[in-house]
């Protein structure tokens, strides 16, 4: 590539990033340091009040609960996806593509609509209960709706492809001959998983986990629709502060804190990846 065209591309990219990434972030950051006002969105003076409020125990509780739910969702997504992706990656090319398309089709529907679909399925008179009652497996309908379980089910359903796709991208490259080599050297299935498959697919596992964990923290409408207001998450708080109680500085401070937390996770991931890469490339 000619140096001049390279500079053009970098300039364009820089422009694009500044306008759509940097500027909104900067606005958010500035807003978070503004004073709060009971009637207006904010007051134009420097204040750390919003950050001080963040340390309030009720907010911290919600943050911890959000993290807990995101962790549970991420782990369950991983446990569900890993064997599925492992088998998919071993299929022939045609079947593999069919399976991947099936995974992606729900993506084309709005996630809000899909959340309503989950309501219909797990509701007290929903499909799941009707089926279980019909089969005689339960005597009275399960009360799943408006609970943490319902929120986690909804989150898993929405986030599963975000785990499956990064895992697939990684597992597809996994050299299955290594499994034979390990078996030949005496390793059983557990040993093969722990010593060979797990360490070699770690980038996919971490990548998928971040892809699930990060959006899960902010998916407020899943908690509203399936958790019924009792199970507020960080996303709900931010949503409320910006759109309901119109306390922009507090919402911005919450967003900033969330962004910082997720950013540090991404940095840790990049660091681990680089460490693994430096092993595989001649040094």
């Amino acid at each position: 590539m000619k140096p001049s065209s390279r500079i053009t591309i970098i300039t364009l990219l820089g422009f694009w990033l500044t306008i759509f990434g940097g500027l909104p972030l900067l606005l958010l950051l500035v807003t978070s340091f503004l004073g709060q006002h009971p009637e207006k969105f904010f007051e134009l003076n420097f204040s750390l009040e919003s950050y001080r409020q963040l340390l309030d125990s009720s907010y911290l509780d919600i943050l911890l609960r959000s993290i807990k739910q995101a962790v549970i969702t991420t782990l369950l997504c991983l446990v569900i996806s890993y064997p599925f992706v492992w088998l998919t990656a071993r299929m022939n090319k045609r079947n593999r593509n069919i399976v991947l398309i099936l995974v992606m089709i729900p993506f084309w529907t709005n996630s809000l609509i899909r959340t309503y679909a989950v309501r219909i399925i797990i509701g007290t008179n929903g499909l799941l209960n009707k089926m279980l009652l019909g089969l005689g497996l339960i005597d009275s309908p399960l009360r799943l709706m408006y609970s943490e379980t319902a929120v986690v089910i909804g989150l898993i359903y929405l986030m599963l492809p975000f785990m499956i796709l990064p895992l697939y991208a990684n597992l597809e490259k996994f050299d299955y001959r290594l499994v034979e080599a390990a078996r030949d050297l005496g390793a059983g299935n557990t040993q093969i998983f722990l010593r060979i498959a797990l360490p070699l697919t770690l980038p996919g596992i971490i990548g998928g986990s971040i892809m699930v964990f990060v959006p899960t923290m902010g998916l407020f409408y899943v908690a509203s629709l399936l958790g019924g207001g009792k199970n507020l998450l960080v996303g709900n708080l931010i949503h409320q502060n910006f759109l309901v109680s119109q306390n922009w500085p507090l919402g911005a401070a919450m967003s900033t804190a969330l962004i910082l937390m997720l950013l540090s996770m991404l940095l840790a991931y990049t660091f681990i990846l680089r460490k693994m890469k430096s092993r595989e490339v001649a040094g």
Partner: peptide, 15 residues
């Protein structure tokens, strides 16, 4: 894994 036989693979298959 239970056979006292070991293989050197064409691709080496080193970990």
């Amino acid at each position: 894994e239970k056979r006292q036989v070991n293989t050197v693979f064409q691709s080496y298959a080193l970990f």
